[in-house]
Amino acid sequence: MDIFDEVKDSIDQFHQELSELDVEERAIEDFRIKYLGKNGIISNYFNKFGQIPNDKKKEFGKLMNSFKNEANQAIESLHQKLNEKQTKQEFFDYTLPGVKPVEGSIHPLSKTMDDIASIFQDMGFSTELGPEIETDYYNFQALNFPENHPARDAQDTFFVDDKVVLRTHTSPIQVRTMEKQKPPIRILAPGRTFRNEAIDASHYCTFHQIEGLYIDEDVTFSELKTTLYLFVKKYFGEDVALRFRPSFFPFTEPSAEVDISCFKCGGIGDDCSLCKGSGWLEILGCGMVDPNVFKSSGIDPEKYTGYAFGMGIERIAMLKYGIDDIRLLYGSDKRFLQQFKQL
């Protein structure tokens, strides 16, 4: 091979290696020695100068000088790059704030409702919805409220006309479901409800409930207890104790109220502001579906039994998040809502 071709190959090789070279001190030095060192490729070619025919010497000299210059420049620029790189690394200020996404938030009532619903959905409850404006029949009559029950007073209920009310609870959904579906029925009924109450720190005319209903051939109070134990432990925590005590609702019998041990004072009571010293917090009402409710929906109370339970979302949310004024939940301040970004 002609020496000129050899040099040209070396130049190509030089370019190739240069393009692949890491900008690292060690690699640059090795590269320099390989081409520009005392025994480097370029020196070796210069050493062969004597063997070049005279008429080609000038051409050869020009080629080699340009190769050497190019190599020198390349090394110099590599050093500069290395320098730059090192400088840059030293000044990289990773403490500058990250660019955060703008996050929205889910309202605490939605969160509470969803968290509760999820637990029961996992237990096979499906969701049913119903209208907020209800007939007297679904809201009261079919639920075994006697004609002169205090809840039917205008002081407690909003009326649209004599036979139409804003539903005072989500229980009408029970009746609507029983009318259209044969047992077994296992449903969850979430929704907005209304009471004719003056607005203050603990009352609002609009509020929310969620209730469950299970009807089948052998539903027992004993199973109701287990279901609610499971719910309470999952939602409020394993350490929370609960108790059932007899109560009264027109549409269930036996009826019970469920209290959980106060999670602020741990059930000790004394001067606790949350449980007012009793050590217990009332969280839900429940019971076995009253036979009269079955009858009004055309379900045979001899064949079927059922349980129902219901709770107020506002109350649970306020307990859970330590909110002391129900009005904070409606028409809210951004600074209030912002706190519910967290999962």
Binding site: E103, G104, S332, K334
Partner: peptide, 25 residues
């Protein structure tokens, strides 16, 4: 429908909107 609402709510919140509740009356 209940779960659909949940999906809608989560998506809108992910765009940076804050959910509010207002009185029905």
């Amino acid at each position: 429908r209940y779960n659909f609402n949940r999906v809608v709510r989560d998506k809108i919140a992910s765009y940076g909107y804050q959910e509010v509740y207002n009185n029905s009356l």
